[in-house]
Design a binder for these strands. Structure first.
Lengths: 139, 139
DNA sequence: GTAACTGCAAACGCTTTGCGCGAAA
DNA sequence: TTTCGCGCAAAGCGTTTGCAGTTAC
């Protein structure tokens, strides 16, 4: 990810490096506050404003993807991976990634049938565990 | 819609009647400010707070559906119609409704394969017109 | 009559921004 | 030296809420 930033001519400061690292290592979809907390665990002089500015910057150059899963807070993940959509376990709040080529194709077909060219989409599945032994957790 | 409110035991005040009517007659997906403006065209003593409170109330009893198409403002439509998803023309902002049984089935299948039971979903297609003669409009 | 609703204005939560300072090129 | 990023605090925005007066039943 750092390499990517250099290619784009972004000045890599200490703060940005830390924030980049936090998201590189994240296996979940942290919101801004969580990124801030994790960044501060590494360097506690990073302000919330800088986190907001940096996340936005990274999003603009397509290093990160921003999501909104309906709780009113932006959540981030790195964008360099294969495209996928999200299933949100409404019991635990956990987010699971999935891919489905067939749905993607149908989406493009629907758009075309309506006279449009698909340029993006948002698909989120809200679901509950089948075997109801859900463990409560933040994600 | 008014009938529906009475069934639910909602007190039908003048303000609520107006707001219900505005959304009954809406062919688009107005945001709160727009609902407020349209309601005021009928009775200019309806406050924004009441619009917010009423829309939320109607949403809670499933008279209305709330959407968030990514512009940070809630948008509403009546909920009594067939289920559908939305295609957003990113050129004009226009919203087109569509149905696709096959996508719905695949969504349920995806959820099940992951060990979940689908309880809701959000699908939005962002697209541009194929024949690029888009007329700019609010919706 | 009384519980429920309303308007107003203040507060809310998330996010952005103006400013002066400090670091990098 | 000039540009850019930073922390801080204040402001912005859509939305919610406390309160006192008003309305529907």
């Amino acid at each position: 990810m750092e390499q990517r930033c250099v290619e784009l001519g972004l000045k890599m400061t200490g703060q940005r490096r830390v924030i980049a690292r936090v998201l590189s290592e994240a296996k979940d979809h942290p919101n801004v506050e969580l990124v801030h907390r994790r960044a501060n665990a590494i360097d506690n002089r990073i302000s919330l404003a800088t986190v907001y500015r940096t996340l936005r910057l990274f999003e603009e150059v397509d290093i990160l993807e921003r999501h909104d899963f309906g709780d009113g807070k932006a959540r981030y993940e790195k964008a360099d991976q294969d495209h996928h959509d999200h299933l949100i376990d409404v019991k635990s709040g956990k987010v699971i990634e999935f891919q489905n080529r067939e749905i993607e194709k149908l989406q493009a077909a629907v758009a075309e049938r309506l006279g449009f060219k698909l340029v993006g989409h948002r698909l989120e599945l809200y679901a509950v565990p089948l075997a109801d032994d859900a463990t409560e957790s933040g994600e």
